[in-house]
Structures are given as C-alpha cells and as structure tokens.
Amino acid sequence: MSIERDMPYAAPNAGSPAYSGVLSRRVLAFLVDYLIIAILWVPAAVVLFFVGIATLGLAFLLYPALYFIVAVCYFGMTMGGPAQASPGMRTMGLKVVRTDGLRMDFLTAAVHLALFWLFNSVLTPLVLLVGIFTDRKRLLHDFLIGAVVVREETI
C-alpha cells in the first residue's frame, strides 16, 4: 500500500474554519443516519426471519441485537470506507479524520460507535457539552479513539 492511501491528510489545527458549525451538523447527521439505519433494519429483519426458519429458530436469538448489528455494519462500512463519513455526515458536509493521519478503518469506526452509545446512554444530553468547550469541537469518544470531525469542504 502506498503512503498516500494510508495517510490521506492530517487533522486541521484548532481555530481552522474546518470546525465551524460542526456540532450542529453532527446532530443533524445523527438524525439522518439513524433514519437510514431504521429503514435498513426492516429488510434485515425479514432476512433474519427466513434464516431463522432455515436454522430451526436458532437465528431468532439475534432479533434483540439486530438493530445494533445493522448499525455497526452501517457505520463500520461507511465511516471506515473510502469516504471516511457516513451518508448522514456526507449530507451535512462532514468527514472523520484521525489525529495520527491514518485512515479510519472498520474496527475503529465500530469502536467509535460503541463508545458513542456508551457515553450517550450515561451522559445524555450532556454528551454534547464536551464539544462546546473543546477547541476542535471534539466529543469524548472522539478523544478516546483519536479522531476529529471536520467540514469536508475546508480540507
């Protein structure tokens, strides 16, 4: 693999216009993404129904976790993919950039999502307060995986 593919660009410095309006755009991107995940959950439930019949009911045990499985696959493949953003983030003109300059991969995107769910379940709605007081509008789960969310048109 070439260096250009592995290291697309470094995160912009604090105070850059790349962070202007990021928090409000992230909230809107969240709503768009979870609407898409809810739509994707329906065909996944139908497929799981038929797989459950074929496995004599064994696959039915996955139903309680199906929404989370769909969400992890969705974010892992989109944020960890070439665009480095979910469709909701792309709609809002956002992109995820790792602070070490490497590309976001499937596992890192899945961990980012899991940490988001964890902190959101404990700190809702206070989870967004961290972004108000940080220079690059980073949230707690962004700090832990070493990522920033930036406006795509500014990079």
Results as ranks from 00 to 15, higher is better:
1 M>S: 14
2 S>I: 00
2 S>H: 09
3 I>G: 01
6 D>F: 05
8 P>K: 07
9 Y>K: 07
9 Y>M: 12
11 A>I: 10
12 P>N: 03
13 N>C: 00
14 A>R: 07
15 G>I: 11
16 S>T: 10
17 P>D: 15
18 A>C: 09
20 S>F: 10
20 S>D: 12
22 V>G: 02
22 V>I: 06
23 L>W: 02
24 S>L: 06
25 R>F: 03
25 R>M: 05
26 R>P: 03
26 R>E: 04
27 V>N: 00
27 V>W: 04
28 L>A: 13
29 A>H: 11
30 F>I: 02
31 L>S: 01
32 V>R: 01
32 V>P: 02
35 L>R: 01
35 L>H: 06
36 I>K: 00
37 I>Y: 00
38 A>F: 06
38 A>D: 08
38 A>T: 12
38 A>H: 03
39 I>D: 07
39 I>C: 12
41 W>S: 10
41 W>G: 04
42 V>D: 01
43 P>Q: 11
44 A>E: 06
46 V>H: 01
46 V>A: 12
47 V>K: 01
48 L>W: 00
48 L>N: 14
49 F>R: 13
50 F>E: 03
53 I>T: 05
54 A>G: 11
54 A>F: 10
56 L>Q: 12
56 L>N: 13
57 G>C: 02
59 A>Y: 02
60 F>I: 03
60 F>D: 10
63 Y>W: 10
63 Y>D: 03
63 Y>S: 10
65 A>D: 01
65 A>Q: 08
67 Y>A: 10
69 I>E: 03
71 A>L: 13
71 A>N: 01
72 V>A: 14
73 C>S: 06
74 Y>F: 15
74 Y>T: 10
78 T>C: 05
78 T>E: 03
78 T>F: 13
78 T>Y: 06
80 G>T: 08
83 A>E: 15
85 A>G: 12
85 A>T: 12
86 S>Y: 13
88 G>C: 08
90 R>Q: 15
90 R>V: 12
91 T>Q: 04
93 G>I: 13
94 L>I: 10
94 L>M: 09
95 K>I: 06
96 V>A: 09
96 V>M: 14
96 V>E: 00
97 V>K: 08
99 T>Q: 14
99 T>E: 15
100 D>V: 09
100 D>K: 06
103 R>Q: 11
105 D>H: 05
108 T>C: 02
108 T>M: 05
109 A>G: 09
111 V>M: 14
112 H>R: 15
112 H>Y: 13
114 A>R: 02
116 F>G: 03
117 W>H: 05
117 W>R: 08
124 T>N: 15
125 P>E: 02
126 L>W: 11
127 V>G: 00
129 L>Y: 10
130 V>N: 02
131 G>H: 06
132 I>M: 11
134 T>A: 04
137 K>H: 12
137 K>R: 15
140 L>K: 07
142 D>L: 07
142 D>N: 07
142 D>E: 08
143 F>Y: 13
143 F>H: 10
145 I>H: 00
145 I>P: 06
146 G>M: 07
147 A>Q: 03
148 V>H: 07
148 V>T: 14
150 V>N: 00
153 E>R: 15
154 T>H: 08
155 I>N: 05
